[in-house]
């Protein structure tokens, strides 16, 4: 009885979770002007239209650029800070951990608003760079927390051994710490990329002429329902899922 109920619940839960995605993908093939029932037949026109749209492809490239560069910066800053805090007891290290984690507990909207005000005051023009700065702010705590949590005694002794044998600090970091932490570093990087790639509110408030993909999709929504939006959404989903599956099969597989 409970067994049957469990499987029924599982089925209903999966149906609920997949319903919007299924509808999104199904109606991206709609041979008609509206992505709602009745389904009028299959066409790839909307995909052709979307892939031929210069604004969208430009936004896609912008998104990739911002995601990769901001995640790299966040990863390097977060990793170095974690390395320092895990190694030496500094006065106030609990406070510093708190400061580095703090942006995680604040709404993205507030981070964006604060930066918008700052850039207005300093006269820095809004661009992909300013959006990227915002993304580093929110991804730095994530990268720091993941790499900090992954550092253990085993790692510390290997680093100490390298130091005792005369390695300068930069060699310890690049030849010992980083390779030993390859898996958590990769996890932090790809998590940051997926967050940044999909982030809307910071990118919306901190860009002006060159925009990222979520912002471009947002402006598509203003003209109402269209299978073109479904096609873009399905493509983004396809890319993200491919990335997740690749990660699952490579990086996370080796975990004991």
């Amino acid at each position: 009885m409970i067994r049957t109920l469990s499987w029924a619940y599982l089925a209903v839960a999966y149906a609920f979770v997949f319903l919007p995605v299924a509808v999104l993908v199904a109606f991206s093939f709609q041979d008609g002007r509206l992505p709602v029932p009745p389904f009028k037949g299959v066409t790839l026109d909307w995909y052709a239209k979307v892939l031929g749209n210069d604004d969208l492809t430009a936004a896609l490239l912008n998104s990739l650029l911002v995601a990769v560069v901001s995640s790299l910066v966040a990863l390097i800053l977060g990793f170095l800070a974690a390395h320092a805090l895990a190694r030496v007891r500094l006065p106030g290290s609990a406070l510093m951990r708190g400061v580095l984690i703090a942006p995680m507990t604040v709404s993205y909207l507030i981070v964006a608003l604060g930066l918008l005000n700052l850039f207005n005051l300093t006269g820095l023009r809004l661009s992909l760079l300013t959006a990227g700065i915002g993304h580093v702010v929110v991804n730095l705590p994530l990268c720091f927390a993941i790499t900090y949590a992954a550092m253990g005694d085993h790692q510390r002794s290997a680093e100490r051994a390298a130091r005792d044998l005369g390695a300068p600090e930069w060699k310890v970091v690049t030849l010992i710490s980083a390779p030993m932490l390859a898996v958590p570093l990769a996890a932090a990087f790809f998590l940051s990329v997926t967050f940044s790639w999909d982030e809307f509110i910071i990118a919306f408030l901190l860009t002006r002429f060159d925009v990222t993909l979520p912002v471009e999709i947002w402006s598509m929504l203003k003209s109402g329902l269209s299978p073109a939006t479904n096609a873009v959404g399905s493509l983004v989903f396809l890319v993200s899922v491919t990335l997740v599956i690749l990660l699952e099969l490579t990086v996370f597989r080796k975990r004991p």
């Binding site: 170095l80 507030i110 700052l118 702010v137």
Partner: peptide, 24 residues
């Protein structure tokens, strides 16, 4: 050395999170 490694992340957070926060 630890301070040197810590500084970039702290400066970034101070400049682009804490400062704008108080300005807000």
């Amino acid at each position: 050395q630890a301070w040197g490694l810590l500084a970039p992340a702290l400066v970034w957070t101070a400049a682009f999170f804490i400062l704008p926060f108080f300005a807000m």
